Computed example of a mutant assay.
Amino acid sequence: MFMSQDGLCSIGELAERAGLTVKTVRFYSDRGLLPEAARSAGGHRRYGPEALGRLRLLRSLRALGLPVREVHRVLDEEDAGERVLEDAVAGQLSELGSQLTALRWREAGLRLVLECPPGERADRLRLIGAVASPPSTAALARFWRGWLPARMPAAATAAFLDAAVPAPPDDPAPSQVLAFARLYALVTRPCTGGEVCQPQAHTAAGPRGPAVLYAGLAQAYELAGGPLRRGAAPYAGEELDCFVDAYASAYGGRDTPDFRRVLLSQLAGDPRIDRYWELVTEVISPPDGPREPTPGSAHDWLFAALGAQTAATG
């Protein structure tokens, strides 16, 4: 309780009780966060007893890192309950998480440059300097949109991108930063010379073919993930049957030994992007942990299984 006759206090007294500077209290007042109760005959600000509690709440909210606009919203809508405060704190936590992720990527990038041989530093700097911290995957998505058939439905494209575009780790090792930078460099260079940028599998199917093909391939790749994680050699089984059926369904054909031989020949002639999948594996797998399967490694395993079966059956 203030001891003045009118129960009010000056800005200096309020600042002293709150443990803040007069400049800070004036800042909050000027922005409408701390209403004054009256003005003295000399024009000086006077504050009521409730100002001290409001000022302490202000200080707490600012200590949590909430920007002034969010503090204003919390105080203005105080009667709406705890929801406004929860939303503001949740938003600040999300923003802080993004900042921490960016710092971890910068730290790993700095370690990458520091720990590499001097002769490689210029190349490393060029690579990581082209990538934001934390990195965006937009360039990878654009790469795949150019690779996928033009007739692919939006839902099928989105499902494929979810599997093909790796989520950058929140706390990367230097090797993962390097792998992502190399991946970015790979997908941003144009097809040149005699490179074939579209596989024949995309043009052989009819209007509905692309969606049918990639839905089936997604199922086959998921099935192949099991033997890949176990380190099993390619074999003819449910995984391969699902893989072949994806192409047969897309082409309106039947899964026969002749179809499998033709498919093997066609897939062998398609352009390959093995380097993309090698780098994806490095991005998503812990440096000292097991290698995580990717659609690319699953495709290679299934292609090898098809080749082994075709060779065995003549």
Rank of each mutant, 00 (worst) to 15 (best):
residue 66 L to C: 08
residue 29 S to Y: 04
residue 149 P to Q: 09
residue 260 R to W: 13
residue 225 G to C: 15
residue 158 A to R: 10
residue 250 A to G: 08
residue 57 L to Y: 00
residue 6 D to K: 12
residue 41 A to D: 15
residue 239 E to Q: 07
residue 86 E to L: 13
residue 173 A to K: 06
residue 13 E to I: 09
residue 312 A to D: 12
residue 304 A to R: 14
residue 137 T to A: 10
residue 119 G to K: 09
residue 263 L to V: 02
residue 177 V to E: 10
residue 157 T to K: 08
residue 148 L to K: 11
residue 275 R to S: 11
residue 287 P to D: 11
residue 171 D to N: 13
residue 120 E to V: 07
residue 153 P to C: 03
residue 205 A to R: 07
residue 253 G to E: 15
residue 311 A to R: 15
residue 229 R to D: 11
residue 138 A to Y: 10
residue 110 L to M: 14
residue 39 R to H: 13
residue 258 D to F: 12
residue 207 P to F: 09
residue 44 H to M: 04
residue 182 R to Y: 04
residue 311 A to C: 05
residue 214 Y to S: 01
residue 125 L to F: 13
residue 272 R to H: 09
residue 33 L to Y: 01
residue 18 A to I: 02
residue 124 R to I: 15
residue 193 G to K: 04
residue 278 E to H: 10
residue 219 Q to V: 12
residue 309 Q to S: 12
residue 48 G to C: 05
residue 143 F to W: 11
residue 272 R to Q: 14
residue 234 P to M: 03
residue 286 P to R: 08
residue 108 A to H: 13
residue 303 F to Q: 11
residue 267 L to N: 03
residue 204 A to E: 11
residue 118 P to E: 14
residue 249 S to F: 00
residue 206 G to F: 10
residue 294 T to I: 10
residue 48 G to V: 01
residue 132 A to W: 02
residue 224 A to D: 09
residue 257 P to G: 06
residue 66 L to H: 12
residue 305 A to K: 07
residue 268 A to C: 08
residue 195 E to Q: 14
residue 213 L to E: 02
residue 184 Y to T: 09
residue 283 V to K: 10
residue 60 S to H: 15
residue 21 T to N: 11
residue 159 A to H: 03
residue 150 A to E: 15
residue 128 I to N: 06
residue 192 T to C: 13
residue 60 S to R: 15
residue 302 L to H: 04
residue 282 E to K: 07
residue 38 A to R: 15
residue 270 D to Y: 01
residue 47 Y to T: 07
residue 192 T to Q: 14
residue 223 L to E: 07
residue 149 P to N: 08
residue 113 V to H: 05
residue 247 Y to M: 08
residue 193 G to Q: 06
residue 149 P to W: 06
residue 49 P to K: 15
residue 218 A to Q: 04
residue 258 D to I: 00
residue 23 K to E: 15
residue 39 R to T: 13
residue 137 T to K: 05
residue 45 R to Y: 07
residue 101 T to E: 12
residue 226 G to S: 15
residue 108 A to M: 13
residue 207 P to N: 09
residue 227 P to C: 04
residue 289 G to R: 11
residue 303 F to C: 04
residue 34 L to W: 08
residue 135 P to D: 07
residue 301 W to F: 07
residue 52 L to R: 09
residue 27 F to H: 14
residue 50 E to M: 03
residue 181 A to Y: 03
residue 170 D to T: 11
residue 7 G to E: 08
residue 296 G to E: 00
residue 274 D to K: 06
residue 297 S to H: 10
residue 196 V to P: 02
residue 96 L to G: 11
residue 281 T to D: 11
residue 238 E to V: 05
residue 300 D to G: 09
residue 13 E to F: 03
residue 300 D to N: 10
residue 201 A to S: 15
residue 60 S to Y: 14
residue 300 D to F: 10
residue 34 L to H: 09
residue 250 A to N: 05
residue 313 T to P: 02
residue 22 V to M: 13
residue 40 S to W: 02
residue 208 R to F: 11
residue 108 A to I: 07
residue 57 L to P: 01
residue 162 D to W: 03
residue 49 P to I: 12
residue 183 L to T: 06
residue 29 S to W: 01
residue 45 R to H: 08
residue 77 E to H: 14
residue 23 K to L: 13
